[in-house]
Amino acid sequence: MELTAIWLTLKLASITTLILLFLGTPLAWWLAHSTSKLRPAVEAVTAMPLVMPPTVIGFYLLLLFSPENPFGQFWLQITGNTLTFSFSGLVVASLIYSLPFMVQPLMNTFAQVGKGPIEVAYTLGAKPWDAFANVILPLSLRGYITASVLTFAHTIGEFGVVLMVGGNIPGETRLVSIAIYEEVETLNYAQAHLLSGILVAFSFLVLLLVYSTNRRAAMRVL
C-alpha cells in the first residue's frame, strides 16, 4: 500500500529535478553574469519559496490552477484535466517551490567558474552550445550534483504546498509526507514510524553526500 506513495514521491522528485535542470540552467547563468538592473529583483523572486510559508505558496497556486483562472482554464483546454488535485499540478507546484534549490547552487557555481573559460572557448572557435557543453558543464559538474541532490531531496520533503494543491488521492497525489500525516491522524503509529524513519535516513544520506562532495555550495543554501 505505502509502496505506491513511495513510488509516486520518487517519480515526482525525479521529474521535478529533470525539468528544473533545464529551466534552472539559463536562469542561474543569467543571474550569475547579468549586469541588468532587473537582476536583484529576479534573484529575490527566485529565492522567495525559501522564505514563504508553504501554505501561502499553496494558496496562490490553488487559485492559479482553478479553472476560473485564465491559466487553469488554458491548462484544462489543452489537456482536458484540471491542475488541482492531480499529479501534473504537483509537478508544476514542485517546480516553483524547489526552484531556489536548483538555481542558487548553480548560480554560485557559474559565478565561481566565471566568464573566463567561456571567453577562451569562443576565441578557440567554440560555438555557444559547444562552449557550454564542453567547457562550462564539466567545470560546473559539482555544482550540478549539489543542485540536483538538493532539489530532489527538497521535493521529497515538501508537505504544505502538496496538501494545499494536491490533497490525498492514492496513486495520484498521495506522497510519503501526506501518507505520514494521515497515518498519524488515524493513530496508525507503526506505519508513521516506518515512513518517517525512511525519510530521516534518506535526508541524512543526501546531506552527507552533498557535504562530502561540495561543502561550500551547499552551505549557501542551507
Binding site: 573566463g116 573559460p117 577562451v120 572557448a121 569562443y122 576565441t123 572557435g125 560555438k127 562552449a131 567545470l139
Partner: peptide
Amino acid sequence: MPAYRRPIGMLFQDDRLFAH
C-alpha cells in the same frame, strides 16, 4: 561576426587553460 568565427588567437593575461 561572432567571436568564434573571427580568425584570431587570443592569449589572456591569466593563461586560462581548461582545468578539466
